[in-house]
Amino acid sequence: MTPAWIEIGLYLVVLIACARPLGQFMADVLEGERTWLAPLIGPLERACYRIARINPADEMTWPRYAIAMLLFNAAGFLAVYALQRLQALLPLNPQHLAAVSPDSAFNTAMSFATNTNWQGYVPETSLGYLTQMAGLTVQNFVSAATGIAVLAAFIRGFSRRSSATIGNFWADLTRGTLYILLPLSLALALILVSQGVVQTFHPYRTAAWVEPSAHGAAAAGQTLALGPAASQVAIKQLGTNGGGFFNVNSAHPFENPTPLSCFLELLAILIIPGALCYTFGRMVRDTRQGWAILAAMTLILVACIAGIMAAEESGNPALAHAGADQSTSAGSPGGNMEGKEARFGIGLSALWAAATTAASNGSVDAMHDSFTPLGGMIAMWLIQLGEVIYGGVGSGLYGMLAFAIIAVFVAGLMVGRTPEYLGKKIEAHEMKMASLIVLLPPFIVLAGTACSVVAPSGLRTIFNPGVHGFSEVLYAFSSAGNNNGSAFAGLGANTPWYNGALGLAMFFARYWLAVPALAIAGSLAAKKHVPAGAGTLPTHTPLFVLLLIATVLVVGALTFAPALALGPLVEHLMMIGHGS
């Protein structure tokens, strides 16, 4: 076993070990029970309710819950848009950065309100500290908390019987932020600061060259971008957001300086989505259901990590043909190291790529654009599966549960019985809503890509013509159309066309999935509980795990196979034929 696999194995063990304690804690929080943090956070929670005049016991129907969610997110969008457009007039802008253009402000506001964190802009040269903190970091918290709230309502659909209501959005949002995201982020931010991640309001500094003559007299030194990065990096990982404080994201030494910071950031990416599976099991009073979902997610994740590792370790035959040495030696880890941080090598780059694309986290520690065609394709495909392999905080699990509903429906058709899941009959309405959740993202991705590769405005900023350029556009829409946020990055995306089109993709991918999810919750909550009978499909068994995996893979594979054949698969064939 290579050191990289030992590292990955340790990572998975710690991740799974955290699922139960954190999942139990989150279940207590979402069920409104008293937790050990109550003496500290309880007064703050009650103050929030008093100031906002909210009665947390006021139960909401699903349309009311959805309207509250949409209004709150609209306010977040407007706040981020305004901060970007007015930043030149606002404090905490020591670099005196100008207002962001309207189309870029639209894209970024949509990106952070929807928990996507697609970044069409360059942070260091575009956004002041106030915009980064009051705009982006705040949205990192509340967009993730919105996902947790929608998931909590979704689970109540299964756990409640003959109920017209699914909870209170404001209470779920507040408790998710204060009890789950805030304490974890605070702890992680402090550890990151101890490791060397910067946290300062000081203006950028200029460092003198070690060898001035090598850079000419014109360059007085190198400008080092600074800022309150640690507080943003912590929640960007925990909230499966991913938007870097610096442009090179988690490859930057001020964001990710040490092996410990790297491990903890990786853990932060998947820890909440993983633990939410256990939370689900607790809330439906059958933890086996949560473990089954977690098993399905983990099996696909491990297969994809292995696939990316194998693709990158095999290197690029075209480079070998040109005489480049890609073999493992004392001075080189071997394989395809183009676009990878030497500190991380292939193992941690592959793990990071798989974890982030599985989890709708847009952060990167290597250039996905420089991965081998198959390595990059696996990362892209993980996104295209609908961000349900762990997925975004909250959104990943309700997406996966939509797949589970489809899986039990398919199984019900096979044996000729009315499908049921967790004691609730799955009928036409639930299937229509689940189908919308599963089919809308592929439509957004494929339609957006198709338009961009024929429209002159879309073609103008594809800087890699040919199959790789197509892959870049497909990746961009896959990322936006599934609220991931990472990029192949070779595409010039900060244009009115891409800012607009990707902004629309992010909006529909978030809210046109959350609304049907809440509709399912409302419909299921109103139903009576059906006792399990001889014809009930057990949904905690290895058989169901395999059925769920097959459902996810068939939808993902069949939908995107033609598009992937036009991009990364052709590029792979060209590469092994030494043609690229």
């Binding site: 349309p63 959805a66 309207p102 036409a428 309405h429 909006f507 046109w512 609304v515 109103a526």
Partner: peptide, 30 residues
């Protein structure tokens, strides 16, 4: 240009409120 982009956002949110109504009507329950 701000009005254009904010207008686009406004339309997006409005049609999503419409989606809630559509899903509600298709629910089949009172």
């Amino acid at each position: 240009m701000d009005f254009v982009w904010l207008g686009v956002a406004g339309i997006l949110w409005l049609i999503t409120f419409g989606l809630i109504r559509v899903c509600e009507r298709r629910d089949g329950r009172p």
